[in-house]
Design a protein around this nucleic acid. Structure first.
Lengths: 182, 182
DNA sequence: TCAGAGCCTGACCGATCGGTCAGATCAGTG
DNA sequence: CACTGATCTGACCGATCGGTCAGGCTCTGA
C-alpha cells in the first residue's frame, strides 16, 4: 500500500472535500477520509496535525477572499456603496467557492465557534451590517440575514447551473430583496 | 434521586429542547440531557425508545402544521395562489415554531435523511416548487431555495423581535423577492 | 555501503457515544 | 400481607471517535 509518489497530501484534501460534502465535517471520520484515499488513518494524521487542520487548509483560499472583501467593504464611504460592494462581492465569493461552502453543509454555527474560525464570525457580522445598509431597523437586518444564510446554504445545491447563471440569479435576487439605505 | 411524580417525560422534553438549541442535536448526548433533568441516562431511555424519538416528539406539532400546509398548497388551483399560500403559510409556521426550528441549528440536511423524517424532504420540495410558482426557470428555483433555507436558518436568531414584527418582515421580504408566476 | 530523511503502517490509547439489562424502590391493590 | 406494574438506577456493552507511537519501508546523498 506504500505510495510511490508523495502526493498524498493533496489526495487527502480532495478526498476530505468530497466526504465533507456528502456527510458533513462532523459526520466524516478520519477513517472515512483514509478509506477514500486508500491509506491508513495514521497517514492522514502524518500529513495534517489534526482533523481541523484539514478543514482549515481546505477553506483557506475562500477565507482569504472573504477577508479581502471585508476590507473593501470597510473602505466604502457610505452605506449605499458598502451595500453594493457587499452584495456583489459576496455573490462572487459564494459562486466561486460554492464547492467549499457546500461542504460545510449547515455546520456554520458550530464550526464558527472553533478556535481557528473565530474571526470569520466577526467578518460575517460586518457583512450582515453592510447588506443591511448599516440600518438598525429589524426588517433590514432580518432580510440581510435571510439572504446571507440562504445563499450560503444554496450555492452548494444547483451544481448543474453554471457559475454565470447562478451568480446572475443571486445578484438579481439580492438587488430586489435588500432594503435600500436610509 | 427517585422522583415522586412521574412528570419526568415532560421534563426530558424541555431539557432536550434547551440542550439541542445550544449544542445542536448531534452535539447533545443523552447524558447531557439526563444531567439537565437530574436523572440517569437510563431514565431518559426509559421514557423514550431512543434519542431520535425525543427529537421526533419535540418536532411533532411543527411537522403536523407543515403537513397540513402541504395539503392546502396542493389544493390551490393555480401557481399564483399556490405561491401566495405557500409564502404566507411558511412564514406563519416559521415564526410560530421558531424555537423548534432553531434547535435544529443547520442540521436539516442530515436530519432529513434519518428514517423518521423522510417525508419532510418531499414536503420541502413541494414547498420549494410552490414558492417558485411552479416555474422551471433556474432563477426562480434558486430564489425560492435561498429564501426557504434562509428563513429556516434565520427564525431562530432575532429572539428579541416579536412574532408580529418578525412575520411582517419575512412576508414583506418574500413578496418582494419571489418571482411572480408566468 | 550506510546513515538519515521522508513517508507510512498496524497496534493501541482514553474518551465518548447510544443503548441494554438486572435489579432496587415504591405506590397501589386485593 | 403478598403481589404487581411503573419508575428509575448503576453497571455494563460494543462501536466509534480523534489521536499517539514505535517501527518498517524506500529513496537519496555522502
Amino acid at each position: 500500500m506504500a505510495r510511490t509518489t508523495p502526493q498524498t497530501h493533496g489526495e487527502i484534501l480532495v478526498a476530505a472535500a468530497r466526504r465533507f460534502g456528502v456527510t458533513g465535517y462532523r459526520g466524516t471520520s478520519l477513517q472515512d477520509i483514509a478509506n477514500e484515499v486508500g491509506c491508513s488513518k495514521a497517514a492522514v494524521l502524518y500529513h495534517f496535525a489534526n482533523k481541523e487542520a484539514i478543514l482549515t487548509e481546505l477553506m483557506a483560499p475562500a477565507i482569504e477572499v472573504l477577508r479581502s472583501l471585508d476590507e473593501r467593504i470597510a473602505a466604502q464611504p457610505d452605506p449605499t456603496s458598502a451595500q453594493r460592494v457587499a452584495a456583489e462581492g459576496f455573490v462572487a465569493l459564494a459562486v466561486r467557492f460554492r464547492g467549499e461552502i457546500a461542504l460545510l453543509r449547515g455546520e456554520f454555527p458550530e464550526l464558527l465557534q472553533q478556535p481557528g474560525f473565530a474571526h470569520i464570525q466577526q467578518i460575517s457580522e460586518r457583512l450582515l451590517d453592510a447588506l443591511a445598509a448599516r440600518s438598525e431597523r429589524a426588517s433590514a437586518r432580518i432580510a440581510a440575514f435571510v439572504l446571507l444564510a440562504g445563499i450560503a446554504e444554496t450555492c452548494g445545491e444547483f451544481a448543474d447551473v453554471s457559475d454565470d447563471e447562478l451568480g446572475e440569479a443571486l445578484l438579481t435576487l439580492l438587488r430586489r430583496a435588500l432594503e435600500p439605505a436610509g
